Simulated scan of single mutants.
Amino acid sequence: MKSPQGDPKDHPITEFEQVLTGTCLCGSIRVTIHDTELFTQRRGNLCHCANCRKVSGSFVAANLVIEEEKVEIQDSAGTLKTYEDHDTLSGNPVYRSFCSVDGNPIKSVASQSPDKVILKMGIFPRIPAPEMESFVMHRHPWEADFEGTVKYKLARGGEKLEE
C-alpha cells in the first residue's frame, strides 16, 4: 500500500476504471465512486465561494458533483456528522458532512442539485481534471487561471464569465 502522503501520479488512471475509493484521514469513513467514465473527460468543479474555501481549508475547493446512486459511503465507526449551512447564496441550506474525529470534509448536499452529491475530492488518491469553476468572481487576484474550465460568475449553472 502506498503512503497517504504519496504522489497522485503513483496511481495510474487505469487503476480507477471501475471504482475510485478514498477515506477520511482516520479511515473510519470510506467513500467509493462507481463510475466507469470518471476519468474519460473533465468532471470536477472548483468552487471559490467563501463557505467551500472554509470547508476545504484552502483557496479553492475541489469538488465532484455526481449522481447519488454512483456513490457508496461506509461509516464504520459512526463518525460522519452533518452541519446545516444556511449562509448560502440561495438561502437554502447546504448539508456539509465531515468526519467528527479528524474533521475531514466528505460531502455536501444542496437542494439545487437534487439526486446528486458533492464529494470533496481531497480524500481520493487521484481526481479528475476540473470541467468548471463556480464563484469565479470570488477568486483571489493572485490565483492562476485554470485553463479549459467553464467559469461561472457565481453559482454553478448560472451566468458564465466571458473571457
Rank of each mutant, 00 (worst) to 15 (best):
V65G: 05
G158K: 01
D102W: 11
R126F: 09
F146Q: 15
H11L: 10
N92M: 08
N92H: 08
D87T: 07
V136R: 04
H48Y: 15
S3G: 01
K120V: 02
S108P: 01
N45C: 14
D85F: 02
I118F: 01
S58Y: 12
P125Y: 00
F124C: 04
C26S: 06
K81G: 00
V19Q: 14
F98D: 04
A144G: 14
N51T: 12
F39A: 00
K153T: 03
L25D: 00
T36A: 12
G91S: 05
W142F: 14
V65S: 02
T40P: 04
H140T: 01
L89F: 12
P93I: 08
V150S: 07
K2P: 01
Q41K: 14
H34F: 13
N63A: 01
A144N: 14
E162F: 07
A144D: 14
G122V: 06
V71N: 03
I106S: 07
G157E: 03
A61K: 09
F135G: 00
L38N: 02
S108E: 02
Q74K: 15
P12E: 09
A50W: 11
T36H: 11
T82G: 00
E67D: 15
V71C: 06
R42N: 14
E159M: 11
L20P: 06
K116V: 07
D10H: 09
G122C: 03
I29T: 06
T32Q: 08
I118A: 00
M121K: 04
T32G: 07
H11C: 07
D102M: 05
I13S: 04
T21Y: 09
S58A: 15
W142Q: 08
P114S: 09
L46R: 05
T21S: 15
E147S: 13
Q74G: 09
P125M: 09
L80H: 04
P128A: 03
D145P: 03
V109C: 10
F124S: 00
C99D: 00
K70I: 11
V109A: 07
K9H: 10
S111R: 10
N92Y: 07
H140V: 04
N92V: 03
C26N: 06
N45Q: 12
G148I: 09
E67H: 10
K151I: 06
V60L: 13
R126M: 05
G122E: 05
E131N: 03
G78C: 11
G158C: 10
E37P: 03
E133M: 10
L89I: 07
T21D: 08
M121T: 06
R156N: 08
K151V: 00
H140C: 10
P114W: 14
H86I: 04
Q74C: 12
H48P: 08
N51L: 10
D7S: 12
L64S: 06
E147N: 13
I13M: 11
H86S: 05
V94P: 01
L154G: 11
C24P: 08
C26V: 08
A77V: 03
K116D: 09
D10E: 15
G27S: 09
P125F: 09
V150I: 15
P93A: 04
F124T: 03
E143A: 10
M121N: 05
C24E: 04
R30M: 14
P12Q: 10
Q112W: 12
R42M: 12
K116P: 03
L38C: 02
I33P: 07
S134L: 11
T40M: 12
E147G: 12
P128V: 07
E162S: 14
A61F: 05
S90I: 02
M121D: 07
E147K: 15
P4W: 07
